[in-house]
Nucleic acid binder design. Structure first.
Lengths: 217, 217, 217, 217
DNA sequence: CATGAATGAGGTTTCATTCAT
DNA sequence: GATGAATGAAACCTCATTCAT
């Protein structure tokens, strides 16, 4: 029952635990809180309580609420950005495969990141909610996530057109049309998951079925 | 002593302008402010200033900030709801027309309401942003706007299937897939209209082209 | 015992007293507090308590602590500035009188303002103490009070020289030398009034005696 | 195991540089900081940064902010006090010289300490600023610096009177009148040195000229 | 009905102080 | 001796709400 060799014990009140783990813990707690209540609605007390520290400690690592928010968003976006790079690279290599297959794979990744993952969903919702106050974050999100994602989709469609697989259609100019069901599912789950959840697997199948049928010649 | 029956008296200095227009003016101002800054981020001072009144006056008509928010959202939703009723009715009458045409018409209305209209866009964004704090509003929005809209789409698709025009496909079970580009365009314009606006006409054409191609047998 | 016709009665808790007297009351209380504890050392709670209001009310009239400080200083400086104008004017008229008499009169005013008056003393001390944080105030103080005062002294000395009453001496180039005993007395009283107060009348006599003897040919 | 008696060991990385110089370095930094921002306005972080140490180290040598302030002031006052003793002694020896010469010499020292030296100027200003919070410091300053200084001046004047050189005048009862230009110059340079500096040499000449003319029979 | 001065709870932020290392 | 992460009390400031007028 007793944990032998607990990695870090602490004196009274929990001081001095793990210096370098702190920022990440705080960012975690902050994202959680901001996602739940929005920027203005979140109290730093809540963030601190969630992180198991006191309010003052936040200021040891971040200069204020806004910086904390930005850092929290960046932190959550980071793994997405990192994966995206790999995905883009794989697009080049897989140039000879059927565009439909690539598209299917691509969406597997995107749904996983933006819909299935709670964090991803909350990120999407938060960026929508706070875009007015943090336009630079929305801009970053576009530049680093949404933009590359759309570019990838457009490239796949063009690839399909070149292979004679797809029609030349709006998918090239407005890849948003292809991505739309992802955003829809993401926000839908945010709003209605409790009462009317989407069965994501069937939804994705339906999405691909409808989309590929629409793209094919 | 008795007022001479005139329904719109002009008190001293222009006060008491349109006695019963007040609440509507306040709701207008409130929606504007809430849309810009979110619920927590909006100050009643701002609402009052926008409405050309003082903070105290808000409390003459509304019991507090939350009630004001709910009322403002309901007010903006009202015209949409009213139009929706007509649209649903027309679906029944137009039962013999090609499903594609009906779909096209339907989307004309939906884009007009949710994307082209600034108010509609802001409503979508606001509901996404504040759903956590006002779940009953999200619920209402679903019950009165999104739900009927999706039902309408599903009915149209079923109608097309019955007429042998469309395939039996995910459009019936997940009409969200059909509506998704609308939500996408709405939020896109909210976030990126300034730097990367969508040409809505071409987007809508592309949407319908891709969608109908996907639905047709 | 009961005050009949008290000028302003109030509801519970003292709300709504005298709208236009408020700012002045607050400035009074603020100056008092700032003079006692300095800018950083003063808590707005104290100011509020002194003024018989709550902290929030300060922000109805002033945008923050710094603005309050500046306003309080300006308010206290105002009567001095106003009197100075009159004094300067009188210098022109009294051009034919002995310079010694004019000097005596001038110092009567200056001592009254900067030494005898508690407010004046505190002002001098405060400006010295906070000059680093509010350089623009020190600048104003020079431009509007100290500068004119020194100019007046220099003019009087020149007048005396022209009349053959005074020697041409440093008093023209460095009227600070003439004013110095005033500043000395002011700060002295601030620091040591309790244990070693200066008898201001005798001090002033001594000052004039020594000064006139030094200036005369 | 035992340290080999070397009094200044060089630990790892340059720490423990001058073991017993530490406190003095901290006091230096502290005075600098307090002079700039006042007691309340100074953060121990700043003091630490200036001293090239961390905040915690301050508490190794001082029990808190107030003690640090007092110690810093005492430290800066120390050389003045030490010199004063010598000056007083010399007054006795030089009893046969002309009082005017002694006065001139005396002021040379005083100006050097309180006006020309930045530290001295800052000390004067700081004591004025913080006298309310640290009355015991003001008292000490009087007892150990200002008082002896004034006494010295009074003695010189009396000496001059005895020698028939000076008039019996206010300089005996109020030697502050003689010292005043020093305080004036000190605070003036603190406030206005940047925009309107005093040429100290000429100012001192003017001071002595005016003063001696005023004192002589 | 409308006002706006006043409130006070509650938020963000600062910083002297502590203490395990 | 020295550190610096952590604290928490207390400061500044905001703003929804109240209420006498």
């Amino acid at each position: 029952m007793a944990a032998a060799g607990a990695d870090v014990r602490q004196g009274r009140g929990g001081r001095r635990r793990r210096k370098d783990a702190r920022p990440a813990e705080i960012l975690d707690a902050a994202f959680e809180a901001f996602a739940r209540s929005g920027f203005s609605g979140t109290r730093l007390d809540d963030v601190a309580a969630r992180a198991g520290i006191t309010k003052g400690t936040i200021y040891v690592y971040f200069s204020g609420k806004e910086e904390l928010f930005v850092a929290a968003v960046k932190e959550v976006t980071r793994p997405i950005r990192e994966n995206l790079a790999g995905l883009t690279a794989s697009l080049d290599e897989a140039a000879s495969r059927p565009a439909g297959d690539i598209l299917r794979e691509h969406f597997g990744f995107v749904y996983g990141r933006m819909v299935a993952d709670r964090r991803g969903r909350e990120l999407v919702r938060m960026l929508l909610a706070e875009a007015e106050r943090f336009p630079e974050l929305a801009e970053r999100w576009h530049a680093e996530v949404i933009g590359p994602c759309l570019d990838g989709l457009a490239r796949i469609v063009r690839h399909g057109v070149r292979r004679g697989e797809f029609r030349a259609c709006a998918g090239v100019d407005y890849p948003q049309l292809l991505l739309a069901p992802v955003i829809m599912a993401s926000t839908w789950q945010s709003l209605f998951a409790r009462s009317r959840p989407i069965d994501l697997e069937r939804y994705l199948d339906g999405h691909l079925d409808l989309l590929l049928a629409g793209l094919r010649r």
